[in-house]
Design a protein around this nucleic acid. Structure first.
Lengths: 113, 113
DNA sequence: TCTTGTCAAGTAGCATGCTACATAGCTATA
DNA sequence: TATAGCTATGTAGCATGCTACTTGACAAGA
């Protein structure tokens, strides 16, 4: 258990194409689940479990929005994600592995959502 | 059985993102498995079963290369694929569903491989 | 002759993606 | 008050994706 956890964290995790795409969307500024769904078209059953796995593997971190802010915007609270340094390493590796990933978002990560 | 087969053929099949990407690669000219693997980075365990499913569903057709031509090129024979009219309809639907697909290949399908 | 590498396709078993729901909060309308 | 629509997240069970191999053909090198 601890051994497999260590191995997963120290080497860059090998991502599926879809998980890599979701990690890239986070990096590109689509920083909550619904936004990732909107920009990729991937269904919630894909996005949310993938976000959970990415966080399990230390490639992203998350933080719930305060209820006050959500109330002010008159919408449900969001769970915001950000890519970790390990996530950036894995994203690079994924872009080498899946050449088309680089075409998916502008090269400079924009503050889209 | 016949009923579910009919339903699958008459309406545009709903593709996964990965299958849609592979269909698009075929349409773009990557007309055999190894070429799809090279351009997408997707592993053989993904590409070949997906090609089989796409053909099962009538979205692509296939044809083995003649042994004589493969011999002349000094390589194993290839299984060439082409998109069907139903496949084109499904590809269009997929590009509506998954907005990022359009970014993956040049708009004009090139005769890449 | 055997080994290695590239091109090309294939496949069992496990991990992940997706359908078809679900919950929940807010607003607007009937 | 109930319904509908939008925003946001979540999940069980089935379909698909991926690892880790395999086979096979050809050429080059030991």
């Amino acid at each position: 258990m601890l051994h497999s956890y260590t191995a997963r964290v120290t080497s860059s995790a090998k991502l599926s194409h879809t998980a890599a795409m979701i990690l890239q969307a986070i990096h590109a500024g689509h920083v909550y689940g619904f936004s990732v769904m909107e920009t990729t078209g991937l269904p919630s059953g894909t996005v949310y479990p993938a976000l959970r796995r990415l966080e399990r593997d230390g490639l992203i971190g998350s933080q719930w929005e305060s209820q006050r802010i959500a109330d002010a915007d008159q919408r449900p609270a969001r769970k915001y994600y950000r890519i970790t340094p390990a996530g950036k390493i894995t994203l690079q590796a994924s872009r080498m592995r899946y050449p088309l990933l680089a075409r998916l978002f502008p090269v400079s990560a924009g503050g889209k959502a």
